[in-house]
Every structure is written in structure tokens, then in C-alpha cells.
Design a protein around this nucleic acid. Sequence first.
DNA 1: AATATAAATGTTATATTATAACATATATGT
DNA 2: ACATATATGTTATAATATAACATTTATATT
Lengths: 152, 152
Amino acid sequence: MKKSQKKLSASLEALKKAEQICDSNGLKLTKLRKQVLNLIWKKSGYVKAYDLLDELKKVDPSAKPPTIYRTLDFLMENGLIHKIQSLNAFIGCPHPDEHNECYFLICDRCQMIEECCSKKISNVVSSTSKNSNFIPSKVTFEIAGTCQNCLN
Amino acid sequence: MKKSQKKLSASLEALKKAEQICDSNGLKLTKLRKQVLNLIWKKSGYVKAYDLLDELKKVDPSAKPPTIYRTLDFLMENGLIHKIQSLNAFIGCPHPDEHNECYFLICDRCQMIEECCSKKISNVVSSTSKNSNFIPSKVTFEIAGTCQNCLN
DNA sequence: AATATAAATGTTATATTATAACATATATGT
DNA sequence: ACATATATGTTATAATATAACATTTATATT
């Protein structure tokens, strides 16, 4: 299977899941939101908001910063994408139907980001939070470095 | 001991450590760098770059964004402060002499941030990285939520 | 269907965060 | 004393993000 096909199916898969999630939660996956989610999935790695805006402008010249940021907010609120805080960038979530504590492996050389889930993370978060009598609500866990591919 | 005294001593302590570290590493803790580090420690929680700039301007009216950002870069590179990625904010490091994998407990209600170190974190990072054949270089681990004080 | 209400999008303006590029000053080594 | 490196000063602008208000579209109710 070619890479373009792989990307295509990941994108379609993501759209399908997004539709399911929105359907079952009474959320509206509007044309704009679909377009933006699609643009995010078209990129192989992460996307910056203004790059996304430029892409969107190609099909909707009236798009402006709030167009993108509002849509990104919606997609984030509903777990369909994530913000990578250390890069001010965004990436599609491959498993929006599960809500685990996740972390990101971010390659400094290529723009690939691997999203991983691990019980270990949630365990560390809850145990360390308990130690400090802290009630956690949002976890940001990003590991930058060099990925497998780029090591060769 | 009053809170202001506690803050003062933490600030003095931090300055002392910074001087030691710079001394033993051939780094120059210049007047500007000291001033900025001091301003960071004066605040009880985290600081934003432009707030810091406003403070600095009070004693050095010619200060400009690069003044602050360059100084913050120096302080970060040498482990004297940390950037909180999820807030675009900065905070002094209470133990710049040790270099552990740390995480931050960030209270949404007050502006307090607790920096914690835990072997568990480094273990999770190294084990999960190994699973993905990933060589980690920089870890961002921030947990937002509600702190002990604000729960009452 | 007509109307009220809520949700989404459009639009203008501006706030916030950060860096590039080049000039000058200060410290350091020879 | 001079060359070199490091730090700071300065101007300009890039990159990221949101506030505030207008308009449109969807939804619920009568």
C-alpha cells in the first residue's frame, strides 16, 4: 500500500470516527469542521494554525484567524485533535473514541509525532498527584527527541 | 516566618545557587541576568515574559522584548528557570543544581506551580521511549488542576 | 409554517508571544 | 594593545491568539 493511500485511509477513518462521535453526542460536524479536520489529517505530521488557515483559504478565501481557532477549539474540546503545547501545533487524534492519558513522541528531525497511551502514565499522574493533594484535570506530556526512522 | 520573608529567602537562595552554577561552569551571571532572575523569584507563581519586561522597565526603561527573551533563554539553557509550555510562562527552578526529569503541578485557580521530581517519571519516559525506539531529549510534563490550598 | 432561540460563522480589530537582523558595548585571551 | 568572542542595545516585524460584535443557519416551540 502506498503512503498516499495510507494517509487517505487514515483521514477517512478519522472522519468516520468523528462523525460517529458527533452523532452520538449531539454535536454538529459542520462542513467547515470537516474541512479543517481533513486538512489536519492530510498533513503527515503536525500542523500550525496559520498554515491550516492558508490551506483553508484555498477553498474558502474568506477564512480568517477566528475561523481556524474556533474550529480548532471545537475539535480539541471533543477530543478529535490535540494541541502540542511545546510546538504551538495541532495533530489529529487517532483514537478519539477512547479517552486515555496520552503522551506524544515528537521527532525534532522529521515532523512526525507518535501519540501513545499507557496505563503507566495515568498511574504516575494519579499517584504523584495524590502525593501533593492535587486534583489533576489536564495533562500535557510531550517528549521531544529523535524517532526510529531518523536514527538510521 | 512571614510569607514575604519566605519569598525573600527563596529568591536569595536561588540567586546564590545561580552564582555557584555559573561560576563553576564559566558562565556569566551578569547584572541583567541577575535582575531578571530576581524578578522571576519575586513573583509567587509563574511569570509572563511581557509582565517581566514591564517590571524590568521600571529599573531599566530601555529594556525591550529581546532583552527579556535573550535573558530567559540564557536562564533556561542553564536550568535556572523553566518554561511552562501550556501557559507560555516562566518559573524559577528551585533545584538548578540537580538535573532530574521533573513535572509541574499547575493550579488553575491560584497561579501556584509546584515543581516535582520523581524517579517514576524518568522511568516511564525511558521505558516508553524504548518501546518506540525513540531517543528522548526534552520532556514536557505539566499537570493542570486544583491545588491543595484552593480545594479548601 | 411562523416565530423564538440557540449555535455557528463572518468580520474587524487588536492583543499576546516571540524572533530576525544589525549596531554597539563589554569582557577575555593573546 | 589588539583581536576575538560574548553580551547588550535597537529597530522592525513575524507568529500566535482572542475580544467584540454582526450575520447567518439550525433547532425547537407554538
